[in-house]
Amino acid sequence: MIVAIAIVRAKDLFAAAMLFAIYSLLSAALFAVLDAGDVALTEAAVGAGISTILVLAVLAMARRQERPKKGHNLLALAVVVVTGAALIYATLDMPEFGAPDNPPQVHVGPYYVEQSYPDMGVPNMVAAVLASYRSIDTLGEGFVILVAGLAVYALLATPPRRRKKRRDHGQEESS
């Protein structure tokens, strides 16, 4: 959490990126504590790995320093506070953390725990749910990453043509 604040405050984007990686590792650890091994592994690989590399690649091209902003954005603060208040309000009636009789633990969830091995002989329930019970979601996930690949490819595969083109555009628009 402190790391998160530091990210927001950091003017040096490079430092922010590094802090971001640390934050990802921390949340990965938190996931591991919460029994989510698969998620922890993924978060570590993605958050600390890929995201950071990509951010650094962008920063290599753009200004490293964030330009200081004039004043504080009160509207943004208000929106965030309202959202936060709504979230806090929502938690008031949430079931107790970690209790075994919470709704998720009594409905649907137990089926996976109990039936996935008899159904398919796979001990990792996460894999069973991921690839079989909810496999259309995972197919969707595959498509999401494919879309990202296609979109980034569309955006960056053509070598850039600088400035000149831009000036032409300016004139075209202003005419």
């Binding site: 998620v39 998720p104 633990q105 725990v113 749910v129 991921l130 979601d137």
Partner: peptide, 10 residues
């Protein structure tokens, strides 16, 4: 519960 894990992976 494995279900949230799956969702979050996605």
């Amino acid at each position: 519960n494995p279900l949230p894990h799956v969702l979050i992976l996605t």
